[in-house]
Amino acid sequence: MKPSGGDVAAHLLGVTPERRRADAEILIDLMREISGREPVLWGTIIGFGSCHYRYPTDTEGDCGILGFAPRKAATTIYLLDGVDAHAEELARLGPHTTGVGCLYVKRLEDVDLDVLRGILTRSLAWVEGGGSEGMRLTVTG
């Protein structure tokens, strides 16, 4: 995946419902603060920074270091180190569901933002540390 070059502010104008748009603005501020990087659109994903990943199978690509997508049903927060790495914190986060590398939040106001900040900070450190044998990462931006 590559950055699409789209305008993040214009993208947010089309996000529905309104709650998702408000949550997106909070997440942009949070991820900007944690990563020290500006938001960039990767299709419909709002990403911060960039990295190159490679699996042992030689499958490889590029993605944001931190990122999320404000979807109609829930906001999807992407965790490159996977949700299992954050099991203890997720137990304290508040209402959410998960996939292998995705955290789904319906209402950001219902979760503990300090816990979310910790999850994102740890995930960023994992990426900047190069990932793991199962997923090698190189920060490129």
Rank of each mutant, 00 (worst) to 15 (best):
R21V: 02
D110S: 12
V105P: 02
D112K: 07
G134Q: 11
L30S: 05
L120G: 00
H96P: 00
K106D: 09
D110P: 00
L30A: 09
T76E: 06
G6A: 11
D110V: 00
A87E: 15
L80K: 03
R117C: 09
G131F: 07
C51A: 13
R32G: 14
H52C: 01
T140I: 13
G14E: 09
G101R: 14
S4H: 05
D114Q: 14
P95M: 03
T138L: 09
V40I: 13
G6T: 08
T75I: 10
P70H: 06
Y78M: 13
A24I: 02
E18W: 00
E38M: 13
T57Y: 09
L66K: 04
K106R: 14
D23V: 00
R107Y: 10
I26S: 08
G14Q: 10
G129D: 13
T140M: 05
K72A: 12
M1R: 13
R32N: 12
L108Y: 01
L93S: 07
G101K: 14
D81V: 00
C51W: 00
A87T: 15
L27C: 03
Y53Q: 05
D112A: 12
D112H: 05
G49L: 07
T97Y: 00
G47C: 10
G129I: 02
V15Y: 02
R71T: 01
L66I: 10
A85P: 00
V15K: 02
L113I: 14
L116S: 10
V8F: 03
V8M: 04
V111F: 07
R32V: 11
L90M: 09
L13V: 00
L66D: 05
L108K: 01
T98L: 02
K106M: 02
G36A: 12
G36C: 12
L93P: 03
C51T: 03
M135V: 12
V40K: 15
F68Q: 03
T138P: 00
V40Y: 01
E25R: 14
P95E: 08
D110Y: 00
D110R: 12
R71Q: 13
C102F: 04
E88T: 14
F48H: 07
L120H: 04
A125N: 09
G14S: 09
L12Q: 04
G67T: 11
H86K: 09
G47E: 08
G64Y: 03
A73N: 10
M31F: 12
R20Q: 15
T97A: 10
W42I: 07
T97M: 02
P17Y: 00
L90E: 06
F48P: 03
K106H: 07
W126Y: 15
A91I: 02
G94K: 08
E89D: 14
W42H: 08
I77V: 15
H96K: 03
E89H: 12
P39T: 11
T16G: 07
R37Y: 10
G61N: 11
I26R: 15
A24V: 03
A69Q: 11
R32P: 01
M135K: 15
I65D: 04
D114G: 13
D110C: 01
R54K: 14
K106T: 11
L113W: 04
I65P: 01
R136G: 05
S4N: 05
T121F: 04
E88G: 11
D58T: 14
K2R: 14
E33Y: 08
D81C: 14
P17E: 00
I65R: 05
V111H: 07
T97R: 13
G64T: 06
T138N: 03
G130L: 08
H52A: 13
